[in-house]
Design a protein around this nucleic acid. Structure first.
Length: 239
DNA sequence: GCGACAG
DNA sequence: ATCTTGTCGC
């Protein structure tokens, strides 16, 4: 089976999806970041319960300023159900459309989900990175795989998440006395890079800005406060 | 068989 | 993921 972005995920069996993940894993690159990031985007989807319609989008921000520059929103649909460990097959098709709609790609994409913090080291962030060759990382709100000890209560404290003897991510306290977030590299960055970026992207809230904004925008899109398409903020404010 | 289980 | 009221804490 040939893996391409055009492959139709909706009709795959779990066995086939697992095979694809194992195949993509062979293309993972976790070497240190090779660029100085100037932009980072958050990617996420929103949907109505029991609906096949999905509202996907990306919010591009300047880095390290973290000011919104532009966003891309696309309405699509998914048949593939949510199955822990296979989130990529449900969300990537829609996010890919929104990504392709961006005239200029962000240097890094942060996903609402995991990178290599996954049983087969192929969470949605890693999956997307490999098929598009983008630099990606994951930020999940709950643990999917591995073991860890709770990090200290202060913002900035973190512990390793390990699985089968290897470090696959970190449990990071992004806000005082608030549940940790799970960070891991997706593609083309190291474990350490993902941790550094996550901390540099987190401000006053639990979720790092890219993911937090993406979640906000796709939700507003679903509610009707924002419209489909590519939009950018007034360039005059950049002068 | 049992427990875990991103969004 | 989404639905939902109040409540606790900075």
């Amino acid at each position: 089976m040939v893996i391409t972005p055009e492959l139709n995920y909706d009709q795959l069996t779990i066995a086939e999806a697992t095979l694809i993940q194992q195949q993509l894993r062979g293309h993972l690159n976790l070497e240190p970041l090779q660029i100085e990031a100037k932009t980072i985007a958050g990617a996420d989807i929103s949907l109505d319960l029991y609906s096949e319609t999905v509202y996907a989008g990306l919010v591009v921000m300047s880095y390290p300023d973290l000011q919104p520059i532009a966003y891309s929103l696309v309405k699509s649909s998914t048949i593939f159900p949510y199955i822990p460990g296979y989130l990529a097959f449900r969300e990537i098709p829609a996010i890919l459309k929104a990504y392709e709609q961006l005239p200029v790609k962000p240097d890094i994409v942060m996903f609402d989900g995991n990178g290599i913090l996954h049983a087969r080291r192929m969470g949605i962030a890693s999956h997307f990175g490999v098929i598009t060759d983008a630099i990606t990382m994951g930020c999940a709100k709950k643990k999917l795989a591995g073991q860890y000890v709770d990090p200290g209560p202060s913002k900035g404290e973190y512990t390793q998440v390990t699985d089968k003897g290897e470090v696959i991510g970190y449990a990071v306290r992004t806000k005082d006395n608030v549940k940790p977030v799970f960070i891991s590299p997706g593609h083309q960055m190291s474990l350490e890079d993902s941790l550094t970026l996550a901390l540099k992207c987190t401000g006053k809230h639990r979720l790092p800005e890219p993911t937090r904004r993406a979640h906000e925008y796709v939700n507003r899109f679903r509610i009707g406060t924002l419209t489909e398409g590519y939009h950018e903020f007034d360039s005059r404010t950049l002068f």
